[in-house]
Design a protein around this nucleic acid. Structure first.
Ligand SMILES: NC(=O)c1ccc[n+]([C@@H]2O[C@H](COP(=O)([O-])OP(=O)(O)OC[C@H]3O[C@@H](n4cnc5c(N)ncnc54)[C@H](O)[C@@H]3O)[C@@H](O)[C@H]2O)c1
Ligand SMILES: NC(=O)c1ccc[n+]([C@@H]2O[C@H](COP(=O)([O-])OP(=O)(O)OC[C@H]3O[C@@H](n4cnc5c(N)ncnc54)[C@H](O)[C@@H]3O)[C@@H](O)[C@H]2O)c1
Lengths: 214, 214
DNA sequence: TCCTCCTTGTGATAATTCTAACATATATTG
DNA sequence: CAATATATGTTAGAATTATCACAAGGAGGA
């Protein structure tokens, strides 16, 4: 599906570069070099240029990159020129934190619905949305075109929820529960495991690994 | 500092394996094969065995791995046999979610203190802890041996907080703000960037990348 | 004891990803 | 307009990481 296989690490870095460029834009900077991007994103200049090179040349030799132009290009590569519509299932601590967070909408991800099965939580207003009964989720998905489902519920219930939305048009699932889930072929699944970060840190500290954060 | 360089990806997987083994333990399973571990953690059996092989042989040929024994070994490798003491700075949406989460303490990470600079939040009780004034953080760190600082505050304030705890014994920083921070050499910094996950997903969906999630 | 079955541990190989170096293009200065 | 300085784009090579294939160890049955 692609001429050259592009490293996922490159895509992840593009996302970081783009948000760095946002800050530059806001600061009125209009040109940056690969070295400056590297410094601002804990990367290195060769890596930055290589990452861009996968998609063609965005810069001017001897000069650098036009901040606005480069950022527009990256966002287009990432598919952020369209609006992605998402729901959050499980309005506990983490679900609420995500629902209140405005950082996603500024990147093109719009939270369209919030669901929970706890009567205490149903009806609660969170920001501009009201938590809906988990039972109406299927109907909601029939009536609204939703791309992404964010799962913030206990591990043991995630698979059941995934099964229920089968064929309802969900294209990607962002799963915060520490468990493997299975969806139909073609559905993107990404697992976010916060404990892993702490445990890798524990390992590094225990074994005195000095990650050269440069 | 190590004989062989062990891939960070291996360490991250060990964390996932270990939590899968926790579930097996709870279910009363006493032996697992690399294939079963692979299935339960979205890995593959060769990878699982290779990961273990970095640290020696934990299994019995023809039989598999003793669940309890293997899990104990992994936890020791990860440094989870000791208690890690952490504080959270920034008790907004995300900070609260982390503070209420009990999943970390069961892995050996104990939240010792919560800090914020918003008078509205100072004094608020969260679980068993009370949010303290950010101003007393240095004193708190002098009086308590804290290993890890979790940062859940707006990007623009993170570096200032990091600077203030310099030399106070913090060994690792888990940063949720989307910005690069600098700490003295030897301090582990790990950045958790949730937006990256969504944006990589956006890229994959846009370009019809079918990540074979086994 | 010998034979069969099963699953690990591992060395060889393949694939992926990063790093370094430099030729090329652009701007600027005198 | 030539000379110089600067930063990109790209190619080649190094390093890291994952996959494969199979020999060897161990259990159990005849
Ligand atoms: N909070 C954190 O900091 C954190 C960190 C790492 C991982 N996680 C994971 O994220 C998930 C959520 O964590 P949390 O702390 O928000 O938990 P929580 O218990 O606060 O929230 C879970 C919510 O899911 C709802 N729920 C349960 N079953 C449901 C169903 N079938 N349909 C709809 N809603 C349902 C519950 O009513 C509850 O509101 C868990 O899997 C947890 O392991 C959380
Ligand atoms: N909430 C999310 O889902 C989410 C997702 C991705 C990234 N993040 C990042 O995590 C961070 C926190 O997000 P949030 O949604 O919890 O924000 P928030 O605004 O709800 O919370 C931030 C908290 O930090 C406190 N604070 C500010 N300056 C401080 C200081 N100097 N010392 C102590 N406390 C201070 C504020 O009083 C507030 O309580 C942000 O950087 C955000 O970009 C959050």
């Amino acid at each position: 599906m692609k001429k050259v296989k592009i490293p996922e690490a490159t895509i992840a870095r593009l996302s970081v570069y783009s948000r760095f460029l946002n800050r530059m834009e806001k600061n009125g900077v209009d040109t940056v070099s690969s070295g400056e991007i590297a410094k601002g994103t804990a990367s290195n200049s060769a890596q930055v240029r290589k990452d861009f090179a996968y998609f063609g040349g965005f810069g001017k030799r001897g000069v650098g990159y036009d901040v606005i132009d480069l950022n527009r290009n990256i966002k287009e590569i990432l598919g952020l020129n369209k609006e992605w519509r998402a729901i959050i299932v499980g309005m506990g601590n983490l679900g609420k934190a995500l629902a209140y967070y405005h950082g996603f909408s500024t990147r093109g991800f719009k939270i369209m619905g919030l669901f929970d099965n706890d009567p205490q939580k149903i009806g609660e207003k969170i920001d501009t949305l009201t938590v809906q009964d988990d039972q109406v989720m299927e109907k909601f998905l029939d009536n609204n075109e939703i791309d992404i489902m964010i799962l913030t519920l206990p591990a043991e219930y995630t698979q059941a929820v995934v099964d229920r939305v089968e064929g309802k048009g969900i294209k990607g699932i962002l799963n915060f529960a520490p468990t493997v889930i299975h969806a139909s072929e073609g559905t993107q699944i990404r697992n976010v495991d916060l404990a892993v970060h702490l445990e890798v840190m524990s390992y590094n500290l225990t074994h005195s690994i000095n990650k050269e954060q440069e």
